[in-house]
Design a protein around this nucleic acid. Structure first.
Lengths: 229, 229
DNA sequence: GTCTATAGTGCGATAGAC
DNA sequence: GTCTATCGCACTATAGAC
């Protein structure tokens, strides 16, 4: 699947917010669904934008009022504290990422196919949700201890996904991976660079499909048994 | 050179601060060199520690007073504003990193040797100065536009160092690199992971020498001409 | 050279009007 | 459902005592 195909079937911010609202109906004061969705989308986008410019802590709620064109009082109808706002964004984003990743990987049948899909999908996700990925990485250390723990768990879970694919490949003799844990970590490190250094790749006009292909080629060269070369 | 050899010849925080003081004597009010060095070391270490826990912006000067056991007034004898403090740390760190990297690379004679040295030295530096590397990465976006520019330049400069080594290797036929820019970027991405995800590698008891060797092996597999295999 | 005290600003959060 | 007004607090920075 190319990036274009991926975006066409990817869920929109509206759908994500609608899902969020339906699961948290109790804690949001406003009752008209369409009003909630519209404002939630505005609030989340503005928060991601402002936080990625200056950091979540440095973003004041007055900044957020200006950007969303909502008043202080209106904002507080959608969350109960600034800290809850960051927690909601982190949790909802993680859930979407996990869901999409697992769905896509299950479409592959061989370890080689699964590896390609896992790498591409992770990159495509971080391209569609680039603001969220950057935000999630940069703000983790400012979360409560409990939310930090969830964030670390999620990092290790996606890494484990790669490690498992590599080890399956070893068992089926299509790969020859000597250190699957380190190899998995390095794959994640390279995927991460795509959203942490987005400015660099944009300036060089490197597309996400080119980047995906390149990483896949690098990793395949490393893990393909010499007899298959 | 192993990590142990590297640490033995690496400059200490005292020397770094002494150098800093001698170049900025005018803007620091205190006149007794030994007092200045001692307090600067304390202030920088405390700033790195606190910032890496909660972010520089979230670290209040009262936090810094507590940690350094200096008063507000005393702190302001060493810098003129909170922003200047972050700028000094960023600039001094960058200078040390550049100096050490260039010194070490010039010791290598072949591209292959230079590549090994560049990768190891970058990792060793980020191990000795792990707090600074993490700080530098996380706080760049909170700097003034001018300091941000310097930070980006420095990132691109070290990346260029890798790209140049790869292209030298191409010319001398010891490497066969098809996309030196992307390859250089990915090397940087993997080096970066060592200090951004330090907790992960510590927990797994992976040493910096093991990590260096692994990256070198991965990259060499990718860029060694097939006729040499 | 270091301290304490305080000025001045802007923050997160809420109550009550509309 | 949204707004304005306001409270109490924590912040950076400085002035002047020791």
């Amino acid at each position: 699947m190319s990036f274009r195909d991926f975006t066409n079937q990817m869920v929109s911010m509206e759908e994500i917010c609608r899902d969020l609202y339906r699961r948290h109906r109790k804690s949001i004061k406003i009752k008209k669904e369409e009003v909630v969705i519209k404002n939630l989308v505005t609030i989340f986008n503005a928060t991601l934008e402002l936080s990625n410019q200056k950091g979540f802590h440095a973003m004041s709620l007055r900044d957020l009022c200006r950007e969303t064109e909502l008043s202080m009082g209106a904002l507080y109808s959608y969350f109960t504290s600034k800290e809850e706002l960051v927690d909601i964004i982190q949790n909802q984003g993680r859930q979407v990422v996990m869901k999409v990743l697992l769905e896509q990987i299950n479409r592959g049948s061989t370890p080689r196919e699964k590896l390609h899909i896992a790498i591409s999908t992770h990159l495509y996700l971080s391209e569609v949700m680039k603001q969220w990925f950057y935000f999630s990485f940069m703000e983790t250390k400012n979360l409560s201890k409990d939310e930090q723990r969830k964030s670390i768990e999620s990092e290790l879970f996606t890494e484990k996904m790669f490690i498992d694919i590599l080890e399956d490949g070893n068992r089926e003799n299509c790969f020859e991976v000597q250190n699957s844990v380190l190899t998995g970590s390095l794959i994640k490190a390279m995927l991460q660079d795509w959203y942490l250094k987005r400015w660099k790749y944009s300036k060089r006009n490197i597309t996400v499909d080119e980047y995906a292909e390149f990483i896949i080629r690098l990793i395949e060269t490393f893990i393909t048994p010499s007899s298959n070369k």
